[in-house]
Design a protein around this nucleic acid. Structure first.
Length: 112
DNA sequence: CTCGTGACTCCCC
DNA sequence: AGGGGAGCCACGA
């Protein structure tokens, strides 16, 4: 991918998240670090907040915190939608945590 | 236009 | 080892 500065932080985030392969997940910090702002991991989450509004579809359910926990599941309708989506992709989730998170982890750096 | 907050993470004590 | 504080960028009121 190209690192054009024309793209805003949000656009970069969306771009990366859309590249997440099926059955894979990543963390906010990994994305933030990859786009050049390791400390701006919060912004990634904030970007996800509006991800359902933009297009094309952004697989925000594949983005979790550093612990592999579904911190943003509440934003998927206040139910276990996020967990269901992950499970549908072969990712086992227990207690809002991804089982064997490291095995399913995908490095955003791969697209660069 | 200014202030506050947010789906996080890292460093320091 | 656990708790607390700071930093990042963007958006809404």
């Amino acid at each position: 991918m190209k690192n054009s500065k024309d793209e805003s932080f949000f656009e970069k985030v969306y771009d990366v998240v859309r590249q997440i392969p099926y059955g894979k997940v990543t963390s906010y910090g990994a994305i933030a670090r990859c786009i050049g702002s390791p400390q701006a991991s919060r912004m990634v989450g904030w970007a996800m907040n509006g991800s359902h509004t933009i297009k094309p579809y952004v697989p925000a359910h594949r983005v979790v915190n550093r612990n592999g926990m579904l911190t943003g599941k509440v934003h998927f309708g206040g139910r276990d939608t996020m967990q269901e989506l992950l499970k549908a992709e072969g990712i086992e989730v227990i207690e809002d945590k991804i089982v064997n998170f490291k095995a399913h982890f995908w490095d955003p750096m791969s697209i660069y």
